[in-house]
């Protein structure tokens, strides 16, 4: 179990991580979610004892990382796939890591085989593609057969094949009963990979819950209605104390959105009772993206634009599969 209490990291006047407390439970995949620059990598470096917290602490099974002996047998991590000497072979890279923790001789070959790099084991790591580097990094993380695994943005920049491979791998690791903490700014990815979420924005904890709870809590359901008798329906629904909103949606003209927990049945019946023609009646569930925007929106003080943000969000096809646009590298 990874436990952070009051974790804070300051660089001069900038606060990268601000009084962060969270728990990562054993035997599950926990997603560490936040926009670029939210402090995810800094937090991971503090977990691994690479950066020293300004205040607070983070422990792994009650021990600080820097007090661990032969830590690779307890915690495996991939923070940056490029942390390899480009002129050193993949095998030599793993060999020195194995020697540092007195791991058995065959651990290097096993790890190489697990990630499918046996054929290129003696090639220099500098010639590897990003996907291969990522595999080498994962081999390094698995070298000591650790219970706890940390991955920082493991799918960043990978091709679809690589993404699927990593995703499958994460699930396999969790199925083996390991604790996995994986960070990402790709919410759709987290929805597929993580059972629990730790969400941060601007270095502060925004939420810690299961992925399902997070989505449910953050974004209620909305019903989208298209009708030629827009004002009439809005009037009727107002009398039922429902909150409605009329928006101009591209290619669809004026659309009525009804907020709050309700079913399409209720609105359909109301419309029929008043003889109102409906062209469309759709229930829109909140996506992880929406939930995230709403939660972090508060912390990043975008209040003034909330309404507009919500509308653009609703325009997009809802559900978890939201196209991953070009992402900045952090």
């Amino acid at each position: 179990m990874i436990e952070a209490t009051g974790l804070t990291k300051r660089y001069g006047a900038t606060v990268a991580v601000d009084n962060l407390s969270f728990e990562v439970k054993p035997g599950r995949v926990t997603g560490f979610l936040g926009p670029n620059g939210a402090g995810k990598s800094t937090t991971m470096r503090m977990i691994l004892g690479l950066d020293t917290p300004t205040s607070g602490q983070v422990t792994i099974d009650g021990q600080r990382y820097r007090d661990l002996h032969q830590p690779l047998t307890k915690v495996g991590a991939l923070l940056d796939a490029k942390w390899v000497h480009p002129n050193r072979s993949a095998r030599a890279h793993l060999a020195w890591m194995a020697a540092s923790n007195k791991l058995p001789k065959d651990s290097v070959d096993k790890a190489l085989e697990m990630v499918g790099l046996t054929a290129v084991a003696n090639k220099r790591a500098g010639a590897f593609s990003l996907g291969m580097s990522q595999r080498l990094g994962i081999a390094g993380a698995l070298l000591g057969d650790p219970e706890v695994l940390l991955f920082d943005e493991p799918v960043n920049g990978l091709d679809p094949e690589g993404i699927v491979w990593i995703r499958t791998f994460m699930h396999r690791l969790a199925d083996e009963g390991r604790t996995v903490l994986v960070s990402s700014h790709l919410l759709s990815e987290m929805a597929l990979t993580a059972e629990d979420l730790v969400v941060i924005g601007r270095g502060k904890l925004i939420a810690q819950s299961t992925t399902q709870e997070f989505v449910d809590r953050a974004s209620g359901t909305t019903v989208k209605v298209r009708t030629p008798q827009l004002d009439q329906l809005a009037g009727v629904l107002h009398q039922q104390q429902l909150v409605t909103r009329i928006e101009d949606v591209e290619n669809e003209g004026k659309v009525l959105f009804v907020e709050g927990d309700l079913t399409t049945d209720q609105i359909g019946e109301t419309a029929a009772a008043h003889g109102i023609v409906l062209h469309e009646l759709t229930l829109q569930r909140g996506s992880l993206e929406q939930a995230f925007m709403q939660m972090t929106g508060d912390s990043v003080e975008y209040h003034a634009h909330d309404e507009i943000a919500a509308v653009t969000q609703l325009d997009a096809p809802s559900g978890a599969e939201v196209a991953a646009g070009p992402k900045e590298d952090n």
Partner: peptide
């Protein structure tokens, strides 16, 4: 210095957190 340049120093400190010994 090459360890700092290529970031392997972090991998090293991760493998052996007792930095002075390493």
């Amino acid at each position: 210095t090459t360890e700092y340049r290529f970031g392997t120093i972090r991998t090293s400190f991760q493998a052996v957190p007792q930095r002075a010994a390493l």
